[in-house]
């Protein structure tokens, strides 16, 4: 059901400390999301491509993951130029394409792709368990991390239960259509999934209590920050300052 295509690898990016990567991913995506200046966003595009090449991710996989967003962006390109009022730059019959609409579509396209690229290179290059441990290093409530890890652990188990129920209805000749019977079947199936999950939860929590669980997961994986990580973090910090400089000082020149 779930694969982590970027999690394994031996590139420079894969070897950087996961905590550093997550911090950098959060900072970089935040500044790009808040920016609306083409110059600074252009520089972020360059950085995201540099990171992508140094992470040596499978290009086909990257494109197939980006396509999910492209579908939505195509809709924006179709609607925004027509619906946002502004200076008309082109018209076919009564359809008027506004400059503001086109600019906004281009901005959104760039921003969403860049943020996703940062995500692929900096967050997807670790497996989920490591990601959970990284979160436990920050000041995130331990209850939330406990829930996150437990949910992750049981998704696969519950998915197996779901597949089993689905096989059971299929062997009884169920074929999905647009009718009440189909919706009823799915609703009962989902209901049964909840019942099974709840029964399992009771067993799991009893078993955990028997083994002396105190409501905290202990991280067995030791993170250590090396010189390489400091260099990487230093590089990203310098870039962040450069980005803010571009954002505020270059806007005027660009629009002329």
């Amino acid at each position: 059901m779930i694969e982590e295509p970027f999690a394994t690898g031996s590139s420079i990016i894969h070897k950087i400390d996961p905590r550093v990567k997550v911090v950098c991913a959060v900072l970089l995506s935040t500044i790009v999301a808040l920016s609306d200046n083409f110059v600074s966003i252009g520089s972020a595009l360059v950085l995201s491509l540099i990171l992508l090449f140094s992470a040596r991710l499978n290009t086909g996989e990257v494109l197939s993951k980006l396509k999910i967003v492209w579908g939505f962006i195509t809709v924006l390109w179709l609607f925004l130029p027509l619906t946002i009022p502004g200076e008309t730059i082109y018209n076919i019959g009564c359809l008027e394409f506004s400059k503001q609409g086109l600019v906004l579509s281009a901005l959104i396209t760039l921003k969403s792709n860049i943020i996703l690229l940062f995500f692929f290179t900096l967050v997807s290059t670790m497996n989920f368990i490591t990601f959970g441990y990284v979160l436990s290093c920050f000041k995130i409530p331990s209850k939330l991390i406990y829930m996150l890890m437990l949910t992750y652990r049981y998704i696969f188990v519950i998915d197996k239960e779901y597949q089993k129920l689905l096989r059971a209805v299929k062997t009884r000749g169920f074929s999905p259509k647009t009718d009440t019977h189909t919706y009823k079947t799915y609703a009962y199936l989902i209901g049964m999934l909840f019942v099974k999950a709840s029964l399992r939860a009771n067993r799991v929590s009893n078993a955990m209590l028997c083994r002396g669980f105190k409501g905290k997961f202990y991280c067995l994986f030791e993170f250590n920050v090396s010189k390489k990580d400091y260099i990487f973090f230093g590089f990203i910090s310098v870039y962040l300052i450069f980005f803010i400089y571009l954002e505020y000082c270059w806007e005027f020149i660009f629009w002329i």
Partner: peptide
Amino acid sequence: LKKLDIDKIPQASILSAAFFVASLVHVP
């Protein structure tokens, strides 16, 4: 999180896993 008792967390987490799986169900 305040309202969720620590004993109730396995229940909430495994149900949340069930919701995750159920929200992947595509109905025609």
